[in-house]
Amino acid sequence: MSLFIRLCQGMLVSLEIFFLTLLFSLPLGMLVALGSMSGKKLIKKPIRIYILIMRGTPLILQLVFVLYAPFYLFGINLNRFTAAIIAFVLNYAAYMSEIYRAGIESIPIGQYEAASVLGFTKFQTFFRIVLPQVVKRILPPVSNEVITLIKDTALVQVVGISELFRVAQNEASRVFSTNPLFIAGIFYFVMNWLVTKVFHSMEERLSYYR
Protein backbone atom coordinates (compact mmCIF):
# COMPACT_ATOMS: atom_id res chain seq x y z
CA MET A 1 0.00 0.00 0.00
CA SER A 2 2.82 2.39 0.84
CA LEU A 3 4.18 1.67 -2.66
CA PHE A 4 0.94 2.90 -4.14
CA ILE A 5 0.98 6.08 -2.05
CA ARG A 6 4.58 6.81 -2.97
CA LEU A 7 3.82 6.31 -6.68
CA CYS A 8 0.84 8.63 -6.31
CA GLN A 9 3.07 11.27 -4.77
CA GLY A 10 5.44 10.89 -7.70
CA MET A 11 2.51 11.16 -10.07
CA LEU A 12 1.45 14.44 -8.48
CA VAL A 13 4.89 15.87 -9.29
CA SER A 14 4.59 14.60 -12.86
CA LEU A 15 1.11 16.12 -13.15
CA GLU A 16 2.33 19.43 -11.79
CA ILE A 17 4.99 19.59 -14.48
CA PHE A 18 2.44 18.50 -17.05
CA PHE A 19 -0.15 21.17 -16.22
CA LEU A 20 2.34 24.01 -15.77
CA THR A 21 3.97 23.16 -19.08
CA LEU A 22 0.61 23.18 -20.86
CA LEU A 23 -0.50 26.38 -19.12
CA PHE A 24 2.49 28.30 -20.45
CA SER A 25 3.43 26.51 -23.66
CA LEU A 26 -0.03 26.58 -25.27
CA PRO A 27 -0.27 30.40 -25.36
CA LEU A 28 3.47 30.93 -25.84
CA GLY A 29 3.35 28.55 -28.82
CA MET A 30 0.76 30.83 -30.43
CA LEU A 31 2.98 33.88 -30.03
CA VAL A 32 5.89 31.90 -31.46
CA ALA A 33 3.71 30.76 -34.37
CA LEU A 34 2.64 34.32 -35.16
CA GLY A 35 6.26 35.45 -34.91
CA SER A 36 7.46 32.67 -37.20
CA MET A 37 4.94 33.83 -39.83
CA SER A 38 5.82 37.49 -39.40
CA GLY A 39 6.72 39.49 -42.46
CA LYS A 40 9.48 41.18 -40.50
CA LYS A 41 12.77 39.34 -40.84
CA LEU A 42 14.02 40.71 -37.53
CA ILE A 43 11.24 38.79 -35.76
CA LYS A 44 10.95 35.80 -38.02
CA LYS A 45 14.62 34.82 -38.25
CA PRO A 46 15.43 34.54 -34.52
CA ILE A 47 12.19 32.67 -33.90
CA ARG A 48 12.95 30.20 -36.66
CA ILE A 49 16.39 29.62 -35.12
CA TYR A 50 14.83 29.10 -31.69
CA ILE A 51 12.42 26.49 -33.13
CA LEU A 52 15.29 24.81 -34.96
CA ILE A 53 17.33 24.49 -31.76
CA MET A 54 14.43 23.33 -29.60
CA ARG A 55 13.40 20.64 -32.07
CA GLY A 56 16.95 19.80 -33.06
CA THR A 57 18.43 18.96 -29.65
CA PRO A 58 17.36 16.43 -27.01
CA LEU A 59 14.91 17.66 -24.38
CA ILE A 60 17.00 15.89 -21.77
CA LEU A 61 19.98 18.06 -22.74
CA GLN A 62 17.83 21.21 -22.66
CA LEU A 63 16.81 20.34 -19.10
CA VAL A 64 20.43 20.12 -18.00
CA PHE A 65 21.30 23.28 -19.93
CA VAL A 66 18.54 25.39 -18.39
CA LEU A 67 19.49 24.21 -14.91
CA TYR A 68 23.24 24.94 -15.18
CA ALA A 69 23.70 27.58 -17.85
CA PRO A 70 22.26 30.49 -15.84
CA PHE A 71 24.74 29.72 -13.06
CA TYR A 72 27.81 29.55 -15.31
CA LEU A 73 26.75 32.53 -17.43
CA PHE A 74 25.24 34.92 -14.88
CA GLY A 75 25.86 33.36 -11.50
CA ILE A 76 22.12 32.84 -11.01
CA ASN A 77 21.00 29.69 -9.27
CA LEU A 78 17.72 28.38 -10.67
CA ASN A 79 15.57 26.17 -8.53
CA ARG A 80 15.43 22.67 -10.08
CA PHE A 81 11.70 22.68 -10.49
CA THR A 82 11.65 26.15 -12.10
CA ALA A 83 14.44 25.12 -14.45
CA ALA A 84 12.51 22.00 -15.46
CA ILE A 85 9.36 24.01 -16.17
CA ILE A 86 11.27 26.61 -18.20
CA ALA A 87 12.95 23.93 -20.30
CA PHE A 88 9.68 22.10 -20.91
CA VAL A 89 7.78 25.27 -21.77
CA LEU A 90 10.46 26.44 -24.23
CA ASN A 91 10.62 23.02 -25.85
CA TYR A 92 6.87 22.43 -26.10
CA ALA A 93 6.11 25.98 -27.25
CA ALA A 94 8.38 25.32 -30.24
CA TYR A 95 6.50 22.13 -31.18
CA MET A 96 3.10 23.72 -30.54
CA SER A 97 4.02 26.72 -32.67
CA GLU A 98 4.58 24.51 -35.68
CA ILE A 99 1.21 22.88 -35.18
CA TYR A 100 -0.45 26.29 -34.85
CA ARG A 101 1.36 27.53 -37.93
CA ALA A 102 0.17 24.56 -39.97
CA GLY A 103 -3.37 25.17 -38.67
CA ILE A 104 -3.35 28.87 -39.45
CA GLU A 105 -1.87 28.36 -42.90
CA SER A 106 -4.50 25.72 -43.70
CA ILE A 107 -7.34 28.27 -43.41
CA PRO A 108 -8.31 29.23 -46.99
CA ILE A 109 -7.44 32.76 -48.07
CA GLY A 110 -11.10 33.21 -48.95
CA GLN A 111 -11.95 33.32 -45.26
CA TYR A 112 -9.66 36.30 -44.78
CA GLU A 113 -11.02 37.97 -47.90
CA ALA A 114 -14.63 37.48 -46.85
CA ALA A 115 -13.83 38.90 -43.41
CA SER A 116 -11.99 41.84 -44.89
CA VAL A 117 -14.81 42.68 -47.28
CA LEU A 118 -17.26 42.61 -44.35
CA GLY A 119 -15.12 45.18 -42.57
CA PHE A 120 -13.66 43.02 -39.79
CA THR A 121 -10.37 44.28 -38.37
CA LYS A 122 -7.32 42.01 -38.49
CA PHE A 123 -7.76 41.35 -34.79
CA GLN A 124 -11.45 40.40 -35.19
CA THR A 125 -10.66 38.27 -38.21
CA PHE A 126 -8.09 36.29 -36.26
CA PHE A 127 -10.14 35.76 -33.11
CA ARG A 128 -13.63 35.40 -34.61
CA ILE A 129 -12.99 33.72 -37.94
CA VAL A 130 -9.57 32.09 -38.07
CA LEU A 131 -8.76 30.85 -34.56
CA PRO A 132 -11.97 28.86 -33.97
CA GLN A 133 -11.38 26.98 -37.22
CA VAL A 134 -7.72 26.47 -36.38
CA VAL A 135 -8.60 24.93 -33.01
CA LYS A 136 -10.78 22.31 -34.65
CA ARG A 137 -8.15 21.41 -37.22
CA ILE A 138 -5.23 21.10 -34.80
CA LEU A 139 -6.87 19.05 -32.06
CA PRO A 140 -5.49 15.70 -33.31
CA PRO A 141 -1.84 16.82 -33.58
CA VAL A 142 -2.09 18.73 -30.29
CA SER A 143 -3.39 15.61 -28.56
CA ASN A 144 -0.30 13.82 -29.86
CA GLU A 145 1.92 16.42 -28.21
CA VAL A 146 0.00 16.34 -24.95
CA ILE A 147 0.28 12.57 -24.76
CA THR A 148 4.00 12.80 -25.45
CA LEU A 149 4.29 15.44 -22.73
CA ILE A 150 2.81 13.08 -20.13
CA LYS A 151 5.53 10.57 -20.92
CA ASP A 152 8.28 13.20 -21.28
CA THR A 153 7.76 14.33 -17.69
CA ALA A 154 9.82 11.26 -16.76
CA LEU A 155 12.87 13.12 -18.11
CA VAL A 156 12.95 15.68 -15.29
CA GLN A 157 14.66 13.15 -13.07
CA VAL A 158 17.96 14.10 -14.77
CA VAL A 159 17.86 17.39 -12.86
CA GLY A 160 17.09 15.55 -9.64
CA ILE A 161 13.31 15.81 -9.40
CA SER A 162 11.52 12.77 -8.03
CA GLU A 163 8.62 12.27 -10.36
CA LEU A 164 6.61 9.14 -11.01
CA PHE A 165 9.23 7.15 -12.91
CA ARG A 166 12.07 8.08 -10.53
CA VAL A 167 9.97 7.00 -7.55
CA ALA A 168 9.19 3.73 -9.31
CA GLN A 169 12.88 3.11 -10.01
CA ASN A 170 13.75 3.76 -6.37
CA GLU A 171 11.02 1.40 -5.25
CA ALA A 172 12.16 -1.21 -7.75
CA SER A 173 15.70 -1.26 -6.40
CA ARG A 174 14.44 -1.18 -2.82
CA VAL A 175 12.17 -4.23 -3.18
CA PHE A 176 14.42 -5.80 -5.82
CA SER A 177 11.62 -6.27 -8.34
CA THR A 178 10.54 -4.67 -11.61
CA ASN A 179 6.89 -4.60 -10.50
CA PRO A 180 6.91 -0.92 -9.43
CA LEU A 181 8.07 0.00 -12.93
CA PHE A 182 5.17 -1.82 -14.53
CA ILE A 183 2.74 -0.27 -12.10
CA ALA A 184 4.16 3.16 -13.05
CA GLY A 185 3.52 2.18 -16.66
CA ILE A 186 -0.12 1.60 -15.79
CA PHE A 187 -0.23 5.07 -14.17
CA TYR A 188 1.07 6.68 -17.38
CA PHE A 189 -1.38 4.66 -19.41
CA VAL A 190 -4.35 5.74 -17.32
CA MET A 191 -3.33 9.41 -17.50
CA ASN A 192 -3.05 9.22 -21.26
CA TRP A 193 -6.31 7.37 -21.52
CA LEU A 194 -7.92 10.35 -19.78
CA VAL A 195 -6.11 12.81 -22.07
CA THR A 196 -7.39 10.87 -25.07
CA LYS A 197 -10.92 10.97 -23.67
CA VAL A 198 -10.76 14.73 -23.15
CA PHE A 199 -9.52 15.37 -26.67
CA HIS A 200 -12.08 13.02 -28.10
CA SER A 201 -14.90 14.87 -26.40
CA MET A 202 -13.51 18.21 -27.59
CA GLU A 203 -13.42 16.90 -31.15
CA GLU A 204 -16.94 15.65 -30.73
CA ARG A 205 -18.08 19.04 -29.48
CA LEU A 206 -16.59 20.74 -32.54
CA SER A 207 -18.00 18.23 -35.00
CA TYR A 208 -21.12 20.34 -35.62
CA TYR A 209 -19.41 21.90 -38.62
CA ARG A 210 -17.00 20.88 -41.31
Binding site: P108, G110, Q111, E113, A114, I129, P132, Q133, K136, Y209, R210
Partner: peptide, 10 residues
Protein backbone atom coordinates in the same frame (compact mmCIF):
# COMPACT_ATOMS: atom_id res chain seq x y z
CA UNK B 1 -20.05 38.19 -53.26
CA UNK B 2 -17.44 35.61 -54.22
CA UNK B 3 -17.50 32.88 -56.80
CA UNK B 4 -16.98 30.21 -54.13
CA UNK B 5 -19.12 31.83 -51.40
CA UNK B 6 -16.49 31.90 -48.62
CA UNK B 7 -19.08 31.40 -45.92
CA UNK B 8 -17.73 30.97 -42.38
CA UNK B 9 -18.07 27.22 -41.77
CA UNK B 10 -18.11 27.47 -37.97
Amino acid sequence: VFQNFNLFPH
